[in-house]
Simulated scan of single mutants.
Amino acid sequence: MTVLSADHVGFTVSDLDRAVAWYEHLLGAAPLHVERRYDHAYTGEMIGYAGAELSWAYFALPGGGHLELIEYARPAPLPGVPETRAIGNGHLCLLVEDIHAEYERLAPVATFRAPAPVRITAGANEGGWAVYLRDPDGITIELIQRRAAD
C-alpha cells in the first residue's frame, strides 16, 4: 500500500450548528460544505450502520487537509469520554504564529488545560510553546508555536 497523503480528520459532535460556529471562530473561516440529514445508503454501509442518517460539515485546514464534523441522528449518538488520556481519544494540533495571541482570542470560548501557553523545554519542539484546549463537546485541540528560527 502506498499512502499518498492525509485527507481529513473527523470528529463526532453533539450539535452541528454549535460546533460549526465554534470551529468557524477557531479556524477563522466558514465550512466549505454543510449537509443536513444525509442518508445515502453507501454511507451506512461504509461506516457499519445500515440506515445511518447524519449531518456534517467540512472545513479546509490551513496547510492542507480537512476537518469533518459529524452529528448522528440515526443511530442515536453515544456519549463519549472526552478525556485526553482516554484510549481511542485523538486530538487535532494546529500550528499557530502567535500562541499567546491565540490563547487570548480563544479564552472566551474554549476551556484550556493550562492557565497559559506552556514553554516546551525538551524534544523536537524545544523552545516552542504549546497548549491544549477543548471544544464544546470536550474534543481536544492542541495549539503549537514552533521556536523562533536561529
Results as ranks from 00 to 15, higher is better:
residue 1 M to Y: 14
residue 3 V to G: 06
residue 5 S to F: 09
residue 5 S to Y: 09
residue 6 A to L: 15
residue 6 A to N: 11
residue 9 V to Y: 09
residue 17 D to K: 10
residue 21 A to I: 04
residue 22 W to H: 04
residue 24 E to K: 06
residue 25 H to V: 14
residue 29 A to K: 10
residue 31 P to I: 02
residue 32 L to R: 09
residue 32 L to T: 06
residue 34 V to F: 02
residue 35 E to P: 00
residue 37 R to E: 15
residue 44 G to I: 04
residue 45 E to L: 13
residue 47 I to V: 15
residue 49 Y to T: 12
residue 50 A to Y: 10
residue 52 A to L: 06
residue 56 W to M: 13
residue 57 A to K: 01
residue 61 L to H: 02
residue 62 P to S: 10
residue 66 H to M: 03
residue 66 H to T: 01
residue 70 I to Y: 00
residue 70 I to T: 05
residue 73 A to S: 13
residue 77 P to G: 09
residue 78 L to F: 12
residue 79 P to C: 07
residue 80 G to S: 13
residue 83 E to K: 13
residue 84 T to P: 09
residue 84 T to L: 13
residue 84 T to W: 11
residue 85 R to P: 05
residue 86 A to P: 04
residue 89 N to V: 09
residue 90 G to H: 11
residue 93 C to E: 10
residue 95 L to C: 09
residue 95 L to V: 12
residue 96 V to H: 01
residue 100 H to L: 12
residue 100 H to D: 15
residue 101 A to Q: 11
residue 103 Y to P: 06
residue 111 T to I: 11
residue 111 T to V: 14
residue 112 F to C: 03
residue 114 A to S: 12
residue 115 P to S: 08
residue 115 P to D: 13
residue 117 P to W: 01
residue 118 V to L: 11
residue 119 R to M: 08
residue 121 T to S: 08
residue 122 A to P: 01
residue 125 N to P: 05
residue 127 G to E: 03
residue 128 G to F: 02
residue 128 G to V: 03
residue 128 G to T: 03
residue 139 I to Y: 15
residue 140 T to M: 06
residue 141 I to P: 06
residue 141 I to W: 06
residue 144 I to V: 14
residue 145 Q to T: 05
residue 146 R to F: 12
residue 147 R to F: 09
residue 148 A to F: 08
